[in-house]
């Protein structure tokens, strides 16, 4: 691979899987899992992760098709390439699982989460917080004379960055939804 200067683990945008399955690099993948919407499904999926020692970095779940009785679980997980492959295989064989899509390798995708931030402060801090919120396109959804709640959607990185900036300005609480993701394009 060296003449092409393709780094191991960078197969995201390649037609070929060039990743070394034995490499010990830790990768982060976003999986979209289509499941039957019945009781216990979430416990089943989470149970798989805890029983086999897989990581869950973020997890969202909601019904997406009422008639078809389907929910979509979006899970962000990390592990070596071999572990990621195992996670997908383990998910796929579950009776309640219809489809598993690895959005990280299947092409470009859009990833968003929604976050709420409570920031307390007065004077300069309050003005600075508002100014930064504007830059980040965060909306004020609640306000008192001494606090704001900002609402923001964005990639997890953007949410992280905003939280870091708000820290010295009086950030007291954060609530995040976790990542929702869709593959880009028509299909």
């Amino acid at each position: 691979m060296s003449p092409l200067q393709i780094k191991k683990g960078s197969s995201k945008h390649s037609a070929y899987d060039l990743r070394d399955p034995n490499a010990e690099v830790i990768e982060t993948h976003t999986l979209a899992v289509s499941v039957d919407n019945e009781s216990g499904v979430l416990a089943r999926v989470i149970g798989l992760f805890s029983a086999r020692g897989y990581n869950i970095d973020s997890l969202t779940v909601a019904e997406v098709d009422h008639l078809g009785h389907r929910s979509r679980i979006t899970v962000v997980t990390s592990g070596t390439p071999q572990v990621i492959t195992q996670i997908k295989a383990q998910l796929e064989r579950m009776v309640v699982v219809h489809e598993v899509h690895d959005l990280t390798v299947e092409g470009p995708s859009v990833q968003r989460e929604l976050a709420l931030f409570k920031v307390q402060g007065k004077g300069e801090h309050r003005i600075e917080a508002l100014r930064l919120a504007e830059i980040f396109r965060a909306n004020v959804v609640d306000s008192t004379l001494e606090s704001f709640i900002f609402e923001m959607t964005g990639t997890p990185e953007k949410v992280d960055a905003f939280a870091v900036l708000m820290q010295p300005l009086g950030l007291t609480e954060v609530a995040r939804t976790g990542v929702a993701a869709l593959a880009r394009g028509k299909k």
Binding site: P21, N22, Q86, A89, E92
Partner: peptide, 11 residues
């Protein structure tokens, strides 16, 4: 018959 058995411990 179980895809998750493949490459689980031995590649």
């Amino acid at each position: 018959i179980d895809p998750s058995s493949i490459n689980k411990v031995i590649t």
